[in-house]
């Protein structure tokens, strides 16, 4: 008699722990053939609130790490994903990705992490400046992370899209609360497991699963989220912008359909810049 396999209970990764929704709600996720795969947490507004708190708690420590250290941790993330590439590829295939594309998506996701890992101790040198003011002052502009960034990931390329949006936000010291693809949430669940075994401190990346309709308005209005990076529809965009106005939140939109996630343009120094504040300091020069 063949052995009955143990199935995994998918949980979301929040604050460094694997949790169910506080509401205990789940939704059934079928695989590409239509067979039942697992129940996925249907996260609520309160789960989002809790995730933002976890992200806010992790923020100062993450931002204070040296750029070199953040770069190494992002690199380690790449290592973890590379090591479990087969598992991730299989998951993508199970939910409908053609084989070749799935392998390519996983490989490029690793590369994207490595790309941003390398920026960690360099973007400041390109984006900051010393400014020659017309008075006896030393004046310089540095970049700083914004704080907690909300990410709403695309359905197309659920792994690469998500990582392409999360990595440039966290490399500079932001922390992230991300809503995984509604249609293909499982890669994000799996990614959470890989994050947990990397050196990334708990709370730096928090991954929620659930329904956009339920969560997007809360992403929009939560004032502790200082920025939103979203791959959304036009009407969702309006919702986010209306909500963002209430606390002068920074918004960054990605056109999921037009974006060539595999292309070089999908990764850029300016994706990092979009989640940075610029701070200028003046000090007199004199003895």
């Amino acid at each position: 008699m063949s052995r009955l396999p143990i199935t995994k209970t998918p949980k979301v990764y929040v604050g460094g722990a694997f949790i169910r929704s506080e509401s205990s709600r789940v939704f059934p996720l079928p695989d590409a053939r239509g067979d039942f795969f697992a129940n996925i947490p249907q996260c609520t507004r309160k789960d989002l609130r809790n995730a933002v708190e976890a992200a806010a708690k992790a923020g100062p420590g993450w931002a204070k790490r040296t750029a070199y250290n953040r770069g190494q941790i992002l690199y380690r993330l790449g290592e973890m994903l590379e090591a479990r590439a087969a598992e991730m590829t299989a998951a993508l295939i199970r939910f409908g990705a053609p084989k070749a594309r799935a392998a390519r998506e996983v490989g490029l996701t690793v590369d994207r992490l490595i790309y941003y890992a390398g920026w960690a101790d360099k973007y400041e040198q390109v984006l900051g400046s010393v400014n020659p003011v017309a008075a006896p002052y030393f004046n310089f502009t540095v970049t700083e992370p914004m704080g907690v960034v909300g990410v709403i990931a695309p359905d197309t390329l659920p792994l690469l899209g998500l990582v392409s949006m999360v990595a440039p936000a966290i490399v500079s010291g932001n922390t992230v609360v991300a809503l995984a693809s509604e249609r293909h949430p499982y890669p994000a669940i799996l990614l959470g497991e890989m994050l947990a075994t990397s050196d990334l401190p708990g709370g730096v990346v928090n991954l929620l699963t659930g329904f956009r309709k339920e969560l997007v308005p809360t992403f929009a209005t939560h004032t502790h989220l200082r920025a939103i990076s979203a791959a959304v529809t036009a009407s969702e965009r309006k919702t986010i912008e209306l909500g963002a106005a209430e606390s002068v939140k920074r918004t960054h939109f990605v056109d999921a359909e037009k974006t060539d996630w595999f292309g070089d343009r999908a990764q850029s120094l300016y994706e990092i810049r979009d989640f940075l504040e610029l701070k200028t300091t003046w000090h007199p020069v004199g003895a």
Partner: peptide, 30 residues
Amino acid sequence: GVVWANTYNKFDPASPFGGYKESGFGREGG
């Protein structure tokens, strides 16, 4: 967005100016 150390209210075209949080976004100058 601007920190004046041992001085205050200094401005220059080469010096980016603008806020964090509800003081706005974007910079002017530099």
